[in-house]
Design a protein around this nucleic acid. Sequence first.
DNA 1: ATACTTACTTTGTATTTCAAAGTGCTTTTT
DNA 2: AAAAAGCACTTTGAAATACAAAGTAAGTAT
Lengths: 99, 99
Amino acid sequence: MKNPITGLNKVFDNRIRLGVMSILLVNEEVNFNDLKQMLEVTDGNLATHLLNLEENGYIKVHKGFIGKKTNTTYAVTKSGEKAFTDHITALENMIKGIK
Amino acid sequence: MKNPITGLNKVFDNRIRLGVMSILLVNEEVNFNDLKQMLEVTDGNLATHLLNLEENGYIKVHKGFIGKKTNTTYAVTKSGEKAFTDHITALENMIKGIK
DNA sequence: ATACTTACTTTGTATTTCAAAGTGCTTTTT
DNA sequence: AAAAAGCACTTTGAAATACAAAGTAAGTAT
């Protein structure tokens, strides 16, 4: 049997990062607060994972305004989309090995 | 949109634990060395994850002998099997949300 | 008998995760 | 208009986790 976990992306070991990506894959742009509410995480925790994803080039951050209020939105990058779908494929292959 | 990561099991955030489970789901009993070679991990690392899975009640350890050589095998428990398949289901649901 | 291998276990460090507290606005209250 | 409160993050620090290197104990080869 070959190694079933090759192809799994370390970045997506984490549930919250996985969740962020899965949300951003269906929604063009999502802001901090919406992500926080969807994922039910604390600010600091979410911020850390967003930073991690950004540093890996998987999401891009856009700091803008709505009126006078800051509005920071997050969106996946091409590279992030590929990394994520590759990960899902690897996951599916791993599961297929099981059935 | 509801929280996409509810149902994901924290124990399976880790690639190596995920790999161990996926191997043990198809193979009745696997020993330490085979797991190590399949997953391409170091001894200490694998041992830690196996202990974690054992402490969570997801795998059971059987220390036996082949002739005079020790032979420690690992197998999933009922609870481990359920936890894992539940996790996979949650994962599939998350992915479904994407497409 | 001695050296070497095998199969783990122990130990210590590096990394990661996470929540609480902090910061710099804006908005509301008095 | 000053003070208080709220928002949207950021920073900080502690706890948990991951990992590899070294250790151990028993078997195997020379």
